[in-house]
Design a protein around this nucleic acid. Structure first.
Lengths: 156, 156
DNA sequence: GTCAGTGCAAAGCTTTTGCAGCGCG
DNA sequence: CGCGCTGCAAAAGCTTTGCACTGAC
């Protein structure tokens, strides 16, 4: 509150921090400084972060949180289905799961390294259909597109 | 050669070993015992393997190959676009890329841990369409479905 | 003969675990 | 005031790198 910037207001994860804390309380977790800091930082993002990025981000804002605690918090939140764990390349990335069930996937540029989110309903329907077809009770799915973005593409 | 089993004949990656070796030669790589062993083992698989599984598999068949060499070979093959690197969970997995461009995706069971391949043309078309729509020149994509297989599902 | 290919051991990273102390409920 | 939450340091994977030696061309 108080001095939130425009960026904060337009974050796709607005309201998620409160949701997450409420859910944790409901599940019997106690509240703590470090966990609140991690949750608040995640809620301000546009897209997914690594544990190290979270650790550095908190450091930069003057908050000291042990890296082990960052990992523990990410693990708890993932198990409570409040975070989605993503695995591209080096380190695992995490991003909030919205209570609405809305979610997106990622497209990576192999040249500049950018990670962009995108959402698409037909794709979601197709994936659900596939789960049924395979006889699986689906719990989630990841889609990662790799290529070259508009700025980096060669168009040989 | 010599005592190939039926399984070998029906492997989805039949012919890939020769293709891979030919491509490497064409790119100026010299041939070597360890690399040939890794390539031959991969060509016999149904689905993706981890570096450790390859190392153990070679050991089991009496071939000694350093784990570092396994990683180096996997890295070279991936860079030559002869292998696809996949990242679910713990360790990275690798599987042959067929020259025909045919490929499949994976569905994981969260209970028994099984990994099954599946292919679906409508999904591929949808993903290509999305790349265009996003302004990306797509190079590849990964799709991972997570859930519970027919044997493990609860169907509450 | 030269230089890529290989094995072993050591180093590097990400992630997890042990343990002592702090603080929420 | 008990037990969960935290931080630090150590440990535990997976993966990469350094180096000396072997072997392909």
């Amino acid at each position: 509150m108080s001095t939130d910037t425009i960026e904060t207001m337009t974050s796709p994860f607005a309201g998620w921090a409160e949701h997450a804390k409420r859910e944790l309380g409901r599940s019997g977790f106690r509240s703590g400084r470090a966990r609140a800091a991690v949750i608040d930082l995640l809620a301000l993002q546009e897209c997914c972060l690594t544990a190290q990025e979270i650790f550095d981000g908190l450091r930069a804002s003057g908050q000291t949180v042990g890296i082990a605690t960052v990992y523990r918090v990410l693990d708890q939140l993932t198990q409570q289905r409040l975070l989605q764990r993503l695995e591209f390349g080096e380190a695992a990335r995490y991003e909030p799961i919205l209570p609405s069930g809305e979610h997106h996937h990622h497209v990576l540029c192999g040249d500049c390294g950018r990670v962009e989110p995108f959402a698409d309903s037909p794709l979601e329907r197709e994936l659900d259909r596939l789960g049924d077809q395979l006889g699986y009770e689906l719990e989630g799915h990841d889609v990662v597109l790799r290529g070259f973005c508009g700025d980096c593409r060669t168009d040989s």
